[in-house]
């Protein structure tokens, strides 16, 4: 098996000021190649004005089997949401 090629995650910014959006991945042996490959693969129709590529294995993600432990404890803290609080009638701008 050949080695050396890396997978890169590609993020496109449609225009300046907008957030970068993940669009998929591409291959590349080095950074310059990765960003050029991303350009040719994901912006042939003027889809963006800026690009990021990040090596896929540089991304840290929550292990699938730990998702409950990570996220469930956040679900019952309803006092973190504005709708939790009762405001007397007639009081505005809160």
């Amino acid at each position: 098996m050949e080695s050396g090629v890396k997978v890169w995650e590609v993020f496109v910014q449609k225009k300046s000021g907008l957030p970068f959006k993940h669009v998929g991945s591409c291959h590349g042996y080095d950074k310059k190649m990765a960003i050029q490959n991303a350009r040719d693969l994901y912006t042939r129709r003027g889809e963006g004005r800026e690009l990021w590529v990040v090596e896929s294995n540089a991304i840290v993600s929550v292990p699938l089997d730990e998702a409950d432990a990570f996220f469930d404890p956040g679900e019952d803290k309803i006092y973190r949401h504005a709708t939790f609080y009762k405001i007397p009638e007639g009081v505005n701008h809160l």
């Binding site: 050949e2 080695s3 050396g4 090629v5 042996y29 080095d30 190649m33």
Partner: peptide
């Protein structure tokens, strides 16, 4: 070519 690209990146 792929070998060269890999070696260069290294």
């Amino acid at each position: 070519v792929r070998e060269a690209a890999a070696a260069y990146a290294e």
